[in-house]
């Protein structure tokens, strides 16, 4: 059971990374970006392809994919800004994009399962032993990176000028621009950050998961559960919720119920979460973090 919880915490890190991009866009820009899932999987396929073609370590591909998906993210955000796509409309427009990306991936990489085997990634099944627990190094890395990203973005949003400007925009666009905040620039920056986070998620997806063009569909439900439970726009909350969902899934899979019940339990949790606290279960982490990091919240 301890092992199941530990693995769940680590897997939850990946959910957290993917959810961060969604929650930023949704919470800050009121754009529900389904294309983020496509970006993550596209990045995973890029990682896969570059690794297979050149034989380099999959994580070195991040030097290519992060800038690339930063640009993709900016371009997408530019599109949203230009056509003033928000709220429900954004969900539908990005759903159209989601379908298109899926068909592109299927056309390019076929429906075959693609996976980086242990021959391409020597450390794929390596594990550390800690207190009798086996922690896969790739998942451990996911977890640490997830902490780094969510903390980094949290500090960026709360401690830097650009971040504060962004938050100001998300709270009241008119007043923010009256104070000279360039809304458009800030939005593009945010889109870029979300895109870059998709690239990082992609690298981990490529190493840990089996790639299918429609693999993103399986994740949508779980990631939205994470986003909602974490509270919109709350990256630290998303990280915590990611871990929570990861643990719920792994523990369900470990018990006699089996993994078949994992979606059932996860979504029941989400439904009750929505009914009892629609603003999110893990929003408290935000204030706690603020206190921890010297307490002078602005």
């Amino acid at each position: 059971m301890a092992q199941a919880i530990a693995s769940g915490i680590l897997t939850g890190g990946l959910y957290g990374i993917i959810a961060i991009g969604i929650t930023l866009n949704w919470g800050m820009m009121r754009v529900i970006n389904l294309a983020h899932f496509s970006f993550s999987f596209l990045a995973a396929y890029f990682t896969y392809q570059i690794t297979v073609d050149t034989g380099i370590d999959p994580f070195l591909t991040l030097f290519v994919t992060i800038p690339l998906f930063f640009i993709f993210g900016v371009a997408l955000q530019w599109f949203f800004e230009t056509f003033e796509i928000e709220d429900f409309m954004s969900l539908l427009v990005t759903f159209g994009m989601f379908l298109i990306f899926e068909s592109i991936m299927r056309e390019r990489w076929t429906a075959d399962f693609r996976t980086l085997s242990s021959t391409e990634v020597a450390y794929k099944t390596e594990a550390l032993r800690v207190l009798g627990l086996s922690l896969t190094v790739t998942r451990l890395a996911v977890f640490l990176v997830a902490i780094a990203i969510s903390l980094g973005i949290w500090i960026f949003l709360n401690r830097t000028y650009a971040g504060k400007a962004l938050r100001a925009i998300s709270q009241d666009r008119a007043i923010a621009s009256a104070y000279g905040v360039n809304h458009r620039q800030m939005a593009l920056l945010l889109g870029g950050i979300a895109g870059a986070s998709a690239a990082i998620a992609g690298a981990f997806i490529a190493v840990i998961f089996v790639l299918r063009p429609d693999g993103a569909t399986d994740l949508i439900g779980f990631i939205f559960a994470v986003v909602i439970l974490g509270g919109l726009g709350n990256t630290a909350g998303a990280f915590m919720a990611g871990i929570f969902i990861g643990v719920v899934q792994n523990v369900t899979g470990f018990t006699s119920l089996g993994p078949g019940f994992a979606p059932l339990i996860t979504f029941l949790v989400l439904i009750f979460g929505l009914l009892l606290r629609p603003e999110g279960l893990f929003t408290g982490i935000d204030t706690w973090l603020a206190k921890m990091l010297s307490g002078r919240q602005t």
């Binding site: 909602i228 979504f267 009914l275 629609p278």
Partner: peptide, 20 residues
């Protein structure tokens, strides 16, 4: 509170639960 996107996601979650 459960209007708009949240209603959409809630119904989606309900359908996952039923399928499961």
């Amino acid at each position: 509170q459960l209007r708009g996107e949240l209603f959409g996601l809630l119904t989606l979650a309900v359908s996952f639960v039923v399928a499961s």
